[in-house]
Amino acid sequence: MYLNSRKYIPSISTALIGLAIFILVPFQIDLSMVNGNNVSGVDARTLPYFLSSLIVLLSVVEIINIKRKERVEEYKKMSKTQYMNIFRVCLTFIAIVLWIVLVPYLGFIIAMIILLVSVMLLMGNRSWLQIILVPLLTSFLLNYVFTTFLGRTLPTGIFF
């Protein structure tokens, strides 16, 4: 049952997101401040209403299509390795979020070195020479190109 229902998850998710957007429209688009008559019959809410309904409709059609093809495809249970790999993606996401949080304190170079070391380790790199050199070179080079050549300002922290 679990394996059969898994293939519906993406379409059910898009349908639910569509529905959520439809419900959110009046809360997120406040028309009370708009003055005058709307002669065109189309306002700021029309397109979001139409699109969210369309997403729900198309997702339902997709669910029906999957149901039709049900016999052809067989879904295998995810292995422990696959779960671990998805877990690594989640950790990478967290590492980037932490980069956004920490960069005002640590500055671009240090925060980027920490991020790159983490991602390299998550991707299975165990060569210490590479783990030291690649983040250092990348961070300093990008910082130099953007600040010196391109005249952009990158975040600086407590240290530099």
């Binding site: 991020l115 790159l116 390299m120 790199n125 690649v134 990008l142």
Partner: peptide, 14 residues
């Protein structure tokens, strides 16, 4: 890939 993709990620962030 453990060198290539972290470097690409650095480019994405900057």
């Amino acid at each position: 890939n453990s060198i290539l993709y972290p470097v690409i990620l650095a480019f994405c962030i900057i």
